[in-house]
């Protein structure tokens, strides 16, 4: 049982939770994730660790309310407990070999690049940050990125804020000027694929973070497997970060859809209204 210490809405359907989890916080590093179950009968769902405080023993996660469990989680308030909260899982990020990094976040992927931005600043090599969202309302952590990024670039699909365009449009413009030696991109799979395809041509090392479907998160079930450079890897223990140029994106995207139909039926069956 882990208590929710703070909760705030960052965007429509996106909520930030600060959770009391001393053991997780003690061992957490940027790039890792946790798995939670909302209640006693809940499913196991992975979330990236967005922030942590070792002294306070807290872990911050960002949750987009898109399915049964995330909507159910949203029904909990400050002081309520999340039934199970386990981690940190996966390998921490290692960007030590790079000096001039750009972090690219799309939608909920912002949760993954935020701790990286903080980390890189602390290490004395602050990164440029590109954040993209469908519209202005969905841009998250702008203030926080202003504090930790070398330079922040925002873009919206509909042009409702700063500029109109995808993160790849911004990245394409910046690469010739900024001469990045690494692109760290996290967001929906099609966005990570688009970034990887762009940087492959330009031969810029690109790290992505997989948000695969998981059960145990400890290597035991193989549900999160993907093909990287022709080899099967498990996102939970070999990742979640991989070389974006080596990922078989078509396969990964197909695998991410495996429960799509069932989820729809399920929400219906469980009488959860996903439109709210």
């Amino acid at each position: 049982m882990n208590k929710i210490l703070a909760k705030r809405k960052l965007a429509p359907n996106v909520t930030e939770y600060v959770v009391d989890a001393p053991r997780v916080a003690k061992h957490a590093n940027a790039g890792q994730f946790i798995i939670l179950r909302v209640d006693e009968d809940g499913e196991r769902v992975p979330f990236t660790i967005c922030d942590f405080d070792r002294e306070k023993g807290t872990v911050t996660i960002l949750v987009q309310e898109i399915g049964y469990s995330t909507i159910k989680l949203n029904s909990l308030g400050v002081g309520d407990c999340i039934h199970d909260f386990v981690g940190p899982l996966g390998k921490p990020t290692d960007l030590s070999e790079f000096k001039n990094i750009v972090l690219v976040g799309g939608g909920i992927g912002t949760a993954v690049i935020y701790p990286q931005a903080k980390n890189l600043k602390r290490e004395g090599k602050p990164a440029d940050v590109i954040v993209g969202a469908r519209n202005k309302e969905l841009i998250m952590y702008e203030k926080e990125f202003r504090e930790s990024a070398r330079e922040l670039f925002l873009t919206t699909d509909d042009g409702s804020y700063v500029r109109k365009g995808f993160v790849t449009d911004v990245l394409k413009e910046l690469i010739p000027i900024k001469k990045y030696d690494c692109v760290f991109a996290v967001g929906p799979m099609p966005m990570m694929r688009a970034v990887s395809e762009l940087t492959r041509e330009m031969k810029i090392p690109t790290v992505i973070s997989m948000n695969s479907i998981m059960v145990d998160g400890t290597g035991m079930c193989g549900c999160c497997r993907l093909t990287v450079g022709g080899e099967t890897k498990y996102a939970c223990i070999h990742g979640p970060e991989f070389d974006g140029h080596l990922v078989d994106w078509a396969e990964a995207i197909n695998r991410s859809r495996v429960f799509k139909e069932q989820e729809k039926e399920h929400l219906c069956f469980l009488k959860v209204d996903s439109s709210r």
Partner: peptide
């Protein structure tokens, strides 16, 4: 994966949130 979903997560029950 199959057995964990069914046994531990009780996916054999219709009302289970685990698919």
């Amino acid at each position: 994966e199959y057995l964990t979903r069914v046994n531990l997560m009780k996916a054999y029950k219709k009302e289970s949130p685990t698919p």
